[in-house]
């Protein structure tokens, strides 16, 4: 069994989800190689070589792969796939963009977003926004899989000593080019990878009042989220939306403020380790999933919490 992990990196830093994807790769048993593509890879290659359990780090050093455009990455990876039984990538926007293109060119039905490896052809994955878990068995002989990072505990970032080997790839079959990247201008952590998320709902009442939610988040070093109702009401931008059609989060602590707990919101946060709900309506469904529910007026409670925490 030969496994290739398509690793995400940002210039000089390996994405932390790599450790989770390698953890998934280890469940299969077999040699695990790790692929890095882009320019100036020596730093990330050195980091990758230390990961516990990697046989070889393959570096495709070329500016063609700098922005990981799907067409270029597929041109690199599809020919390499002949040497591997299983291709794995994180189910981040990096992986989701690239792997289906590779799978289609290999005539493989990709399996997205696995959260467990039951055997070498059987996996579980959330469907219906996490409202159900499907156990699936593939009949493909070569596998292309994306891994939900939160489904696997990370392997050790240290302890390995893989060989680093350079590879080169083909030319893309279609034309696309990078124009620009605007990184989120926020000192707050990114919503999907934050340890703590503070979210507000319709109960917050206005964009002005939402500053109260943000103040609590900043005190905690947390990301800020919102329910669809708060987004639809125009209190906050829609990239803050947590829910089935927004972002799926699973932080250590999720604080839901003035959120009733509609199904589509719960689908986006119910895998959080601890859930706090603050709502004045004690019948609100959010309390059914909350570890710590506080039935109270958020306009009194949130400033008090921000002050005391």
């Amino acid at each position: 069994m030969k496994i290739l992990v398509i690793a995400e990196h940002h210039g000089t830093e390996l994405a932390t989800n790599t450790l989770n994807v390698v953890a998934a790769a280890k469940k299969f048993g077999g040699d695990i190689d790790l692929l890095l593509a882009g320019s100036n890879l020596s730093d990330v290659a050195a980091q990758a070589a230390k990961i516990d359990g990697i046989s070889k780090v393959k570096t495709a050093e070329s500016a063609d792969y700098d922005h990981h455009l799907a067409e270029s990455m597929a041109a690199l990876i599809v020919p390499m796939a002949a040497d591997y039984d299983i291709l794995l990538a994180p189910s981040s926007t990096f992986g989701k963009n690239i792997t289906p293109r590779i799978a289609a060119l290999l005539d493989v039905q990709q399996i997205s977003d696995i959260i467990s490896v039951e055997s070498n052809d059987t996996f579980t994955r959330p469907v219906y926004g996490g409202q159900a878990i499907a156990k699936v068995q593939t009949s493909d002989s070569k596998l292309v899989i994306t891994v939900r990072p939160t489904g696997f505990d990370p392997v050790n970032a240290e302890g390995g000593s893989a060989a680093i080997e350079s590879v080169s790839g083909g030319a893309p079959d279609a034309k696309s080019e990078f124009v620009s990247l605007k990184e989120a201008e926020s000192d707050r952590p990114e919503l999907t990878s934050a340890n703590i998320v503070v979210s507000g709902g319709r109960g917050v009442g206005s964009a002005e009042n939402f500053k109260m939610i943000e103040a609590l988040a900043d005190k905690l070093g947390a990301a800020v989220g919102a329910s669809r109702a708060a987004v639809d009401a125009g209190y906050v931008p829609n990239d803050w939306q947590v829910g089935q059609t927004g972002k799926i989060v699973a932080p250590q602590l999720y604080i839901a403020i003035g959120i009733s707990g509609a199904i589509q919101h719960l689908a986006g946060m119910k895998d959080s380790k601890y859930i706090v709900a603050i709502n004045k309506d004690e019948e609100a469904p959010i309390f059914q999933v909350a570890d710590y529910g506080l039935v109270a007026d958020l306009f009194d409670t949130v400033p008090e919490l921000t002050e005391k925490i």
């Binding site: 469907v127 409202q131 159900a132 156990k135 699936v136 593939t138």
Partner: peptide, 15 residues
């Protein structure tokens, strides 16, 4: 190509 062996609801949260 991919067979569904089972579909279940995730364990309910004890909230």
């Amino acid at each position: 190509k991919v067979k569904i062996l089972n579909v279940s609801e995730p364990p309910a949260r004890t909230g």
